[in-house]
Design a protein around this nucleic acid. Structure first.
Lengths: 242, 242
DNA sequence: ACAGGACTCGTACAGTGTGCGAGTGGATTT
DNA sequence: AAATCCACTCGCACACTGTACGAGTCCTGT
């Protein structure tokens, strides 16, 4: 899980990341990085990013807050570790057996689901690059899919980046919406009215809001995501044709 | 600037946002929301999201920290206000005169530049929906572009959302990279070596990293962005053809 | 018996957002 | 002229944060 460390890490200096630091050798059968990361994820899932404090985490593990610093250099490193965990939850089918387009489609939907399940991921994506082993595994697999599709050279990574960007960009704002609605005493009709009021000066915009106001917001989001996903993949495919 | 308030705001209840709360009537010639927001942005630009504290902001404005709470209900509302400001910096040409594809292309590049100029934006996107007047203005304009392109009904907003998602998703992780490199004593060669080491178990991935290691990272990012942008727009265009 | 390493954790420090309530000064009303 | 009001300021306090430090505990190897 998170006992990973890239070789030769300590010798060079520049990049501050868990993945480039030799972890302490730990002999204890009790606490461990795994357990800490797992507990941190539970806290994050149930209370959100603000709900994770070292003291709370210590309490959950029945230890002092500062004991955790034996296993983890600081809170940011802990966050790097939990961040990588979510990449492990993303399903990427083998492109050789299901075809590249299916493979990346499934991965896109899976990624979205994982992010929605762990809304705190939105807070981490802008904070640190995804360099952990799980993230690299996903990147490698999707990269293979695009290679199989016929992309060559840098285009492989560009195509890969385009798809990932789309999923991030579509999902992160949705997470913000979900959070905002959870904070308020959510009443879909009143909310729609308010948003409509906000857009009062923009008749065009208003027309769009009115249009999907009567649909279930969840399904609207799904449709929007599919629409964009198909468009992105179509666009990439056109690139191949040329 | 930020004296905006949507009509009928106070009467209804559900949604917690600056944009739905009557601001206090302020008569003073001295401090004002505008000034506070401007100072907050300067602090954010120069010190990042963690550099903005109510005390520092108060000091910068030569006032007590808690005085600011006269103008702003809490820090989150202040962040909503500064968030909307960045939307005001995004250029969206008139699609009627430059054509829809040009218009949205320019807006995509502009949006990316604005985000890179204000890296703290990445931290806000996942935290609150963009409901301010400036954000709505941009949304309205790009929406018009896609309408002009020929999209109809919900597809207008889906297309619009797809493009915005792509820009967000491409730019947010780049901001994370920039931040990580700023934190470290950045040496591009050593960094590349480290990343290569991280990817040692993934020969394919490694090949991609090696490939762009000798290019200037800035231009690689630009190329990647353009590649994806063209792909996304091509994909949307294909949708139109059907 | 001793040494050393592998932990644990209480205390402390500097910082955070913000509720409260007292205070100030100028305009308005009596 | 006196009284009232109100927009506004701000010091203090509270609960909370990440984490440096150093003293203490236990287990293992000699």
């Amino acid at each position: 899980m998170c006992e990973w460390i890239y070789p030769g890490a300590v010798t060079s200096k520049p990049f501050n990341s868990v993945w480039f630091r030799e972890p302490r050798k730990v002999a204890s059968p009790g606490r461990s990085r795994e357990e800490i990361v797992r507990a941190a994820m539970e806290l994050l899932d149930s209370e959100g990013i603000d709900g994770l404090s070292m003291r709370k985490l210590g309490a959950k593990l029945m230890s002092g807050a500062t004991s955790l610093y034996w296993y983890v250099a600081n809170k940011d490193e802990l966050l790097e570790l939990v961040y990588d965990e979510i990449w492990g939850e993303i399903a990427v089918p083998d492109p050789e057996t299901v075809g590249w387009r299916n493979a990346v489609s499934v991965m896109a939907h899976s990624m979205r689901q994982v992010m929605l399940r762990h809304p705190w991921s939105a807070d981490l994506i802008g904070h640190m690059p995804a360099l952990g082993p799980q993230a690299l595994t996903v990147a490698d697999r999707t990269r293979r899919a695009f290679k199989l599709a016929g992309f060559t050279g840098l285009d492989i990574d560009y195509a890969n980046g385009t798809l990932t960007a789309y999923v991030f960009g579509m999902t992160i704002p949705q997470i913000a919406w979900n959070a905002a609605m959870a904070d308020s005493d959510y009443d879909s009709q009143a909310l729609a009215d308010q948003v409509a009021m906000a857009a009062a000066d923009f008749p065009d915009l208003l027309e769009g809001i009115r249009a999907d106001q009567y649909e279930d917001p969840g399904t609207v989001r799904e449709l929007a995501f599919d629409f964009g996903l198909v468009s992105v993949l179509d666009g990439l495919e056109r690139r191949l044709a040329k």
